[in-house]
Simulated scan of single mutants.
Amino acid sequence: MKPTLLILAAGMGSRYGGVKQLDKFGPNGETIIDYSIYDAIKAGFGKIVFIIREELKADFEEIFGPKLEGKIDYDFAIQSVQSYVPAELGIVERTKPWGTGHAVLCAWEQTNTPFAVINADDFYGYEGFKIMADFLSTNKEETRHAMVGYQIKNTLSENGSVSRGVCELDADGFLEVVTERTKIYRQADGQIVFEEKDELTKLDDNTIVSMNFWGFMPGVFPVINEMFKDYAIKNLHSPKAEFYIPTVMTYLIQNGLGKCKVFSNESEWFGVTYPEDKPTVTEALQKLADQGKYPVVD
């Protein structure tokens, strides 16, 4: 059975100033999602699930429905503030959904195969999709999951600092710890550093970081559900608290419930965090089109 691709597209785009998931970046008006879907189909995925807010559904259906019809199965999962919140908590007062881990949980009903998770506004490259599709299609261990990692030198922005999950691996290439570093940038002397409490720590150019490209076996959903129930109860009155995918993976690893194989690849990642990133992404996609790596997306 072919794996499913979950696309995290419910974000608010606060720093970007708009719905960047649907913004046009390619030479013929393609979204970044168009490229991810193209690579996913080519790599062997069999279904796409868009995880979105209710108010975006009509736009997503209009834009992607005609493109996907007859090419790959697709569905929509709605991430709302109330999704999977324990009934006894009543109506939760917060404006943003609960984060990426919660988003995955919201796609439980639409997902019954091994699945991968990506961000809607990130370009990952074909190599990553092929690596993940091959793993998910052949893995027989229900508690073995995966992550496609990127070298940090290929993930920086010229327009400001970035947040990245810095990974530590064991000798066999399995994830031990992923630590979120919220202010990473390249200094004028070329050294990559992260800043924390006014202290600078150097990072090697080839340090593996998580770009939120995860692979899971479907048996993980009940675990995520129980984790989120506890999280929602504890953070009911913390409107900015977010339940992240790395939190899930860390819990699995630390409690002996799962392992995460990290696959490194040398592809250049690029994404959109700031409005100033758009010209850079547009230029990169035009270059790929000129090289013949991507056709016009109808």
Results as ranks from 00 to 15, higher is better:
Met1Asn: 15
Lys2Trp: 06
Lys2Gln: 13
Thr4Leu: 08
Leu5Gln: 02
Ile7Asp: 04
Ala10Pro: 15
Gly11Lys: 10
Met12Ser: 15
Gly13Leu: 01
Tyr16Asn: 11
Tyr16Thr: 09
Lys20Cys: 08
Lys20Phe: 07
Leu22Cys: 12
Leu22Arg: 11
Asp23Cys: 11
Phe25Lys: 04
Pro27Trp: 12
Gly29Leu: 02
Ile32Lys: 07
Ile33Ser: 15
Ser36Gln: 08
Ser36Val: 04
Ser36Met: 04
Tyr38Thr: 10
Asp39His: 13
Ile41Cys: 08
Lys42Met: 08
Ala43His: 13
Gly44Pro: 14
Gly46Cys: 00
Lys47Ile: 12
Phe50Lys: 11
Ile51Pro: 13
Glu54Thr: 12
Leu56Ala: 11
Phe60Asn: 05
Glu62Leu: 14
Phe64Asn: 13
Pro66Gly: 01
Lys67Gly: 00
Leu68Ile: 03
Gly70Asp: 08
Asp75Lys: 12
Asp75His: 09
Asp75Asn: 12
Gln79Gly: 09
Ser80Val: 10
Val81His: 15
Ser83Trp: 04
Val85Leu: 06
Val85Gly: 05
Pro86Met: 00
Ala87Ser: 14
Leu89Val: 00
Ile91Gly: 01
Val92Met: 08
Pro97Leu: 09
Pro97Gly: 10
Gly99Ile: 04
Gly99Ala: 08
Thr100Trp: 01
Thr100Gln: 03
His102Tyr: 11
Leu105Trp: 03
Leu105Cys: 05
Gln110Ile: 04
Thr111Trp: 07
Phe115Lys: 08
Phe115Thr: 07
Gly125Ala: 11
Met132Cys: 11
Thr138Tyr: 00
Thr138Asn: 08
Asn139Pro: 03
Gln151Ile: 00
Ile152Asn: 01
Ser157Thr: 05
Glu158Tyr: 09
Asn159Ala: 02
Ser163Tyr: 06
Val166Trp: 00
Cys167Tyr: 04
Leu169Lys: 03
Leu169Gly: 02
Asp172Ala: 07
Asp172Cys: 01
Leu175Ala: 15
Glu176Thr: 15
Glu176Ala: 07
Glu176Gln: 15
Val178Gly: 06
Thr179Phe: 04
Glu180Thr: 10
Arg181Ile: 14
Ile184Met: 03
Ile184Gln: 06
Arg186Val: 09
Arg186Glu: 15
Gly190Cys: 09
Gly190Asn: 14
Ile192Pro: 04
Glu195Met: 09
Leu200Cys: 05
Thr201Ser: 13
Lys202Gln: 15
Leu203Asp: 14
Asp204Gln: 08
Met217Ala: 03
Gly219Cys: 01
Pro222Phe: 02
Lys229Trp: 08
Lys229Arg: 03
Asp230Phe: 05
Ala232Asp: 09
Ala232Cys: 07
Ile233Gly: 05
Lys234Arg: 07
Leu236Ala: 10
Glu242Ile: 04
Tyr244Thr: 07
Met249Gln: 10
Met249Gly: 12
Thr250Trp: 05
Tyr251Ser: 03
Leu252Ser: 04
Gly256His: 01
Leu257Lys: 05
Leu257Gln: 01
Cys260Tyr: 05
Phe263Pro: 07
Phe263Glu: 03
Ser267Phe: 02
Glu268Arg: 14
Gly271Leu: 00
Gly271Lys: 00
Gly271Asp: 02
Glu276Thr: 06
Asp277Asn: 10
Thr280Asp: 13
Thr282Phe: 00
Leu285Pro: 04
Leu285Lys: 03
Ala289His: 06
Ala289Cys: 01
